[in-house]
């Protein structure tokens, strides 16, 4: 009897054993978060402070000033008058349908997340490009960050820090930082070996090689990474709103719960519009960075 059972059912651990295992891990983590939760939260205080300040700045400044600043940034980033006009229309649409405030919240959290991702992602990418061992150990972590369902890592984050802006920010950064790390690594590794050798032959040290050759030449690729990071951060807006991040995600959630079709559609479209603007501006800015590559030779 035991023999046939072995083949019909997977030999799993006993129910009580599994329960004890889960309990132990949960208990240990709960213990850990009770002891260190406050300390860890304190680490994020400056970020929280900045995030709130930035959000208030965008929300409390007169909308027309904010709009003009945005349009100026869009124009100088893209040098395209069509994109600027398109963005103007889009922002008017957003404001007219009552989504201005939520949009400012979303822009502020995306801005801070992008900023953090760049700040941590580029140095990690540089580290990875410099050593195959670092790459071999960081790569699988990035894979996990990108494929692990976000709800799963939201659980420990919420247990540790509660519900609010910081856990949301962490969730967004975890999801959005891998592309910039990967593309910084790739961009630096793809730098022409002979150019790098030339710098070396003229006596460049490590930091001279990094700042004069590797980073400038990798910049277009790094910019593609920044673009990807912004897109992924926007994609996380709805999930982040589940744990208390204000912005365009919250009305979407409310719309799902109450079957408010139009509300969901409008806020969804506002996210799409933001995504398109961010994407086009960062892409054409990135393209301008590599103009020297297309220089005509007649």
């Amino acid at each position: 009897m035991n023999f046939t059972e072995f083949f019909t059912a997977f030999p799993e651990m006993s129910k009580s054993g599994l329960r004890a295992f889960k309990k132990t891990v949960d208990g240990a983590y709960r213990q850990f978060s009770r002891e260190y939760g406050d300390a860890i939260e304190a680490v994020f205080d400056p970020v929280l402070f900045f995030l709130i300040w930035f959000e208030k700045l965008l929300q409390n400044s007169p909308w027309i000033v904010v709009l003009i600043v945005f349009l100026a940034l869009i124009y100088f980033g893209s040098r395209s008058i069509y994109l600027t006009i398109g963005s103007f229309i889009a922002f008017i649409f957003i404001g007219y349908f009552g989504m201005w405030e939520d949009t400012m919240s979303t822009v502020s959290i995306i801005g801070v997340c992008t900023f953090l991702s760049i700040g941590f992602g580029i140095p990690i990418g540089i580290l990875m490009s410099g050593s195959d061992r670092a790459r071999a150990s960081i790569s699988p972590i990035l894979d996990i960050m990108q494929t692990m369902p976000s709800f799963v890592y939201l659980i420990p984050v919420v247990m540790l820090l509660g519900i609010g802006k910081i856990p949301g920010l962490l969730a967004v950064v975890i999801y959005a930082i891998p592309p910039i790390i990967r593309l910084t690594d790739l961009g630096i590794r793809e730098v022409d070996k002979e150019v790098l050798e030339a710098a070396e032959a003229f006596g460049a040290n490590r930091s001279q090689k990094l700042f004069r050759v590797q980073l400038p030449l990798a910049l277009p690729t790094i910019f593609a990474g920044i673009n990807q990071t912004i897109m992924m951060a926007l994609a996380m807006v709805v999930i982040a709103s589940m744990i208390g991040v204000k912005g365009l995600g919250q009305p979407v959630l409310k719309a799902i719960a109450n079957q408010y079709f139009t509300m969901g559609l409008l806020n969804g479209l506002a996210i799409v519009v933001l995504a398109i603007i961010f994407d086009r501006v960062s892409q054409s800015f990135g393209k301008r960075l590599q103009q020297h590559r297309q220089g005509s030779h007649e």
Binding site: V195, E197, A198
Partner: peptide
């Protein structure tokens, strides 16, 4: 030693594509 004693010229030039000619020449 590399900065002061040797200069090197490469088969595929090894110029910095993101810098103009003057900046390339004053690399060393």
């Amino acid at each position: 030693f590399r900065r002061n004693r040797t200069g090197m010229v490469f088969q595929r030039f090894g110029l910095f594509p993101h810098q103009n000619i003057v900046d390339n020449v004053q690399l060393g």
